[in-house]
Design a protein around this nucleic acid. Structure first.
Lengths: 240, 240
DNA sequence: TTCCCAAAATTGGTATACACTTTTTGACGA
DNA sequence: TCGTCAAAAAGTGTATACCAATTTTGGGAA
């Protein structure tokens, strides 16, 4: 495929920015609220309230909620009001296990398929992440990190040239960031290791070595995988 | 519960008879039409027509179509009419590759988790499939086979005790049966081998051997995986 | 034929109404 | 005080009508 990369580093408005459909708007807004922790597990999702808040009618809200329900971020039961899904430790483990399997596979495929343009993009992303980490410290850089990190993984998934795999990774195996902080080891510890692992994945991709790339990605994700018996002595505290 | 009088023209309910919602009805009907080949790639999906055919209003039809679109069985573009998705050889290959990875993983997990009840169920299913094959021949047994085979795989996915894995297998990696016939080797050839493989998977599960189960499931699915250079000399011809 | 354009058809979305179910409320009695 | 239970309120599920945006169709012109 031609390398029509030119991703947008801007907030979210792609230059195209054709009028978003109402369901897209609603879907993104609600999803964002959940993923960022603005809404928390168990919070109620009332169709009428969301409709007035977001500024569309009930119909697209319902479609958006159905989508989020299919993706596992929202729990819908007939005639009951929707609530933000709750993610237990086991849920987090399951998701990371599946991500490790699928993203590992994706990295392996990407190794023999990724374009130089995409490799450069990955390099840039990692460079920016590390720079922000140095400048802002592990506490302040988080906001930007999540976005850049997501793109880093998305670029690799895209380079695997397996559209269904890409879609599954993008829509069925997500976790709210807050859950990440709840179950994983402290942030600064895992951030340093993450950057080293990203560099290794990048090296494997540059070397066009599928097995290495798959193994490196696997190691990366398994190292993030919270364990029931692992080093989780730190308190959850406020997750906001 | 008060006995609510409803206009139920479908006697789909078994004993429980949980009244299906209109979107469930629409979703199942349309999905069934696509998977069985009653509707074929490129066929138009008109909301009004489907609404009158199925006997519900446009609203649940639209939700059903969106769901099927998310699952990849239907292609929706804004303001364009929906059409039944087209599955190329590469699509089929991709789906079988991903199924092999994920169902292999599922079988491995199932080996140490599956109950004796479920093992018995698998045994029964395979027995019935083989009996029907003997009695009806490879041509006539197909209709029943698809259903039983789907349950065989679904039982294993369920026994893996990984809800997201189960959901992905059930909703994101499906193929219309007709495509199966279009791209795979002739039916009678693969049917015989399939039964042998099912027996091996069953043996591995009974032995509670995860590696064996995973490998056997992998082999099963990879053997079904159509190859661009494989033994596909037979003509596609009419796919009806 | 091919191109172009207006008419018809279709989807996306809003608004409203109502049936059905869950959830809340509040009075009642032990 | 505490539970119980039925009525009231709230919320979802579906139907319907309507309009806007866009595609699709069909016919006429070059």
């Amino acid at each position: 495929m031609g390398g029509s990369l030119k991703n947008e580093m801007t907030r979210e408005g792609s230059k195209d920015a054709a009028t978003q459909s109402a369901v897209e708007t609603a879907y993104r807004r609600i999803r964002h609220m959940i993923l960022t922790g603005e809404m928390r597990s168990g919070d109620k999702l009332l169709e009428n309230q969301l409709a007035t808040t977001i500024g569309v009618s009930r119909t697209p809200i319902r479609e958006a909620l159905n989508r989020l329900n299919a993706e596992g971020l929202v729990v819908l039961e007939r005639y009951r009001r929707g609530i933000v899904a709750d993610f237990s430790l086991e849920d987090a483990i399951e998701i990371f296990r599946l991500r490790a399997i699928l993203e590992g596979h994706a990295a392996g495929r990407a190794a023999t398929r990724i374009s130089d343009t995409h490799l450069d993009r990955l390099q840039d992303l990692e460079r920016v992440m590390e720079k922000q980490f140095e400048e802002l410290g592990w506490n302040e850089h988080l906001e930007g990190f999540d976005k850049l990190n997501a793109e880093f993984h998305a670029v690799i998934a895209s380079a695997a040239e397996s559209p269904r795999l890409e879609k599954i990774l993008a829509s069925s195996l997500e976790l709210p960031a807050s859950i990440f902080n709840r179950y994983s080891e402290p942030v600064e510890m895992r951030t340093r290791r993450t950057h080293a692992q990203h560099r290794e994945i990048l090296s494997a991709l540059k070397a066009r070595n599928p097995e290495w790339a798959q193994a490196a990605m696997n190691a990366h994700l398994f190292s993030l995988l919270p364990t029931a018996s692992g080093s989780l002595e730190h308190e959850a505290g406020n997750v906001g």
